[in-house]
């Protein structure tokens, strides 16, 4: 069976910085090639730096989404 053509696009999935419990699943998707990156939406708060460190440690390429009208 021929190898599939590379996608002309990159697929991602979004998580908030506070959604660190989703990282193992997203890391598995990334490892399988089902997603190419994550979009990380910033949620300001006391846990921000700890959450960010956890996300960075997952090593998944990321885009960032600034906080918006729903979160300040």
């Amino acid at each position: 069976m021929p190898e599939s053509e590379p996608h002309p696009y990159r697929i991602g999935a979004t998580l908030r910085t506070t959604d660190t419990e989703l990282l193992p699943g997203l890391a598995a998707l990334h490892a399988r090639g089902d997603i190419d990156h994550i979009q990380v939406r910033i949620i300001p708060g006391e846990t921000f730096r700890r959450d960010l460190a956890t996300i960075a440690a997952a090593g998944i390429p990321a885009a960032v989404h600034a906080p918006h009208h729903a979160t300040g």
Partner: peptide
């Protein structure tokens, strides 16, 4: 966050 994650995109509203 963008600097830490090496992100080349920051989406804003």
């Amino acid at each position: 966050a963008a600097d830490t994650l090496g992100a080349d995109t920051i989406v804003i509203h």
